[in-house]
């Protein structure tokens, strides 16, 4: 784990995960490459030989995913690694990411004879930034009391003011009747 940690420190762009139950030293690394203006996700799978030198793993099926809130969204079908141990998948241009267009891409190898289970993930900003509206809540009939449509508020308020203004005028007249009667007494 210490080696793994230092490796991670050195290769900040190459996040690594390992499956200790099968082959403790097989590695999978993720890279983002742009070729002919096509964005591609590249997974490189290596396995150390007897001398401890990393050698490419051929013919391993790599599954690519984009991490989403409620599951992992597959990017196409599984891709087999080539002679260089590399598997390439096209990154979907229209996938929404977070506000800065970041998404986490995951590469996975499952139940492979040579390397067992491997998984790694890495963040890219290739996704479409999502706009989250933090502006004022919309005024609507379904909005909260504070966000009632202005024309509605104005209409109701003016009708109420007009009618109750008249009612208070009448109440004032009642007071005038009482006063008129008092003067008569005097």
């Amino acid at each position: 784990m210490a080696i793994l940690g230092s490796f991670f420190m050195l290769n900040i762009h190459n996040a690594i995960a390992q499956d200790s139950t099968h082959n403790s030293s097989a590695k999978i690394a993720l890279d983002f490459v742009t070729q002919d203006s096509i964005n591609q996700v590249k997974a490189t799978v290596t396995n150390p030989d007897a001398n401890g030198k990393d050698t490419a793993v051929k013919g391993a099926d790599v599954h690519f995913f984009i991490k989403k809130s409620f599951g992992l969204l597959p990017i196409g079908d599984a891709v087999s690694t080539d002679d260089n141990g590399e598997a390439l998948a096209e990154f979907p241009m229209d996938i929404p990411g977070d506000q800065s267009g970041n998404v986490t891409v995951i590469a996975k190898i499952e139940d492979n004879e040579q390397v067992g289970n491997l998984e790694t993930s890495k963040v890219t900003n290739w996704a479409v930034p999502t706009k989250t509206d933090h502006g004022d809540p919309k005024r609507a009939l379904w909005a909260s009391a504070d966000n009632a449509p202005i024309p509605l508020v104005v209409t109701v308020t003016s009708i109420v003011a007009l009618v109750w203004g008249t009612i208070f005028y009448i109440l004032f007249q009642l007071a005038a009747i009482k006063k008129a009667g008092k003067l008569e007494n005097a």
Binding site: K68, S69, F70, G71, L73, I95, P96, T130
Partner: peptide, 18 residues
């Protein structure tokens, strides 16, 4: 299927789709 429209992704637990 349940998900987040902002992410344009929904999942039914087994399968995650656009």
């Amino acid at each position: 299927y349940f998900g987040d429209e902002n992410e344009d992704v929904v999942s039914n637990g087994d399968e995650t789709v656009r």
